[in-house]
Design a protein around this nucleic acid. Structure first.
Lengths: 181, 181
DNA sequence: TATAGATCTGTTATAATATAACATAATGAA
DNA sequence: TTCATTATGTTATATTATAACAGATCTATA
């Protein structure tokens, strides 16, 4: 499905090892339909492996979250869903988002009060994986990063303080390379 | 003012180099009035140095924020202010908080939608200082930490991505040493 | 010291985000 | 098939935050 359509920019900028683009900053103009397909596919597998139900509603909300690599507000998603289904009330969206966050398929960006598809499907099964983001204030792209030094620094300082980590909010905002004049 | 009142626990747990307790996890039962005095005093100095006006309202809001080392919601502050002044509307609090945040005297914790006094007065004048927190989900204490490795990891990954940092939200939640069974 | 511009505060109204509580429907296990 | 569980629909409301404008206070300077 559109597997052959890899545009010049994409070919220049990244190795295509996975159809879910992990660094949208470096892959502008990529074939995003692959991201969506890959995200939904991974979600199906993840849920069935865990014995959880990715219902049509939840699947559709995930698909809407994956319309791009930009965080989306709950009420934006609500409006999109209302376009297709008429009256939909906030709890419908919030419950779907809660499920998707619980499954590690979506993350909430506290600094923006918005949601984004998880860029590292499966990584949350690992011993220590927390979501850390770079968020461009100009183009709006948010990239989930994996950085051993950052993980190490956080684990180290927590250990020294005798602190047991339950949850990490790490959101670095600024300008991505392309958006700096 | 209460400079002599240093209780046993405080004496055991930390060197008193500064009357503003920087690590409340390690200084339970400390003489908190020193923290308040020190925070207000520092705020006066900082504002006058910068030509900003720490009005009675702003000063009082800062004092209320400093009632403890726990994040406080804007509407909690509003209620406290209403107790002393009768009708007070939300913009009164939000404007004061905005000023205090702008001056680096208060931080907003995005993961809690709450505010806390800056634990490192003056540090924000340095080249790179961002507020990073450990937040105990049990006792509610939030500690602003300074960690060179963490700073380095963040600067390093941003540099490698060509990303220009404007703002950092780093909030690690979990259980502090005392609150783990 | 009078006054004009700027800043701060008061006030009303409302926006944006999120959840509680309960009713109905769909699902899956026995 | 029936019951228990889980998911969704629906109504109402809570919580956090801001817009817009009026009135008060401060500060610099004529």
């Amino acid at each position: 499905m559109a597997k052959e359509i890899v545009d010049d920019q994409l070919a220049q900028n990244q190795l295509v090892t996975n159809h879910l683009v992990e660094n949208p900053f470096a892959a502008r103009g990529h074939d995003h339909s692959s991201c969506i397909v890959s995200a939904l596919d991974g979600a199906e597998k993840r849920c069935s492996r865990r014995g959880e139900r990715l219902t049509p509603l939840r699947r559709r909300v995930l698909e809407l979250v994956w319309r791009g690599h930009r965080p989306v507000g709950a009420y934006d998603l609500l409006a999109l869903l209302q376009d297709e289904r008429g009256r939909v009330a906030p709890p419908t969206i919030y419950r779907a988002l809660e499920f998707l966050c619980d499954q590690g398929l979506v993350h909430r960006l506290d600094s923006l009060q918005a949601f984004i598809g998880c860029g590292h499907p499966g990584a949350h099964d690992e011993a220590h994986h927390a979501a850390h983001f770079l968020i461009c204030q100009d183009c709006g792209l948010a990239v989930e990063m994996r950085d051993g030094q950052l993980d190490g620094a956080i684990l180290g300082l927590a250990a020294r303080a005798g602190f047991a980590i339950a949850d990490e909010t790490v959101e670095i905002s600024g300008l991505c390379a392309d958006c700096q004049v």
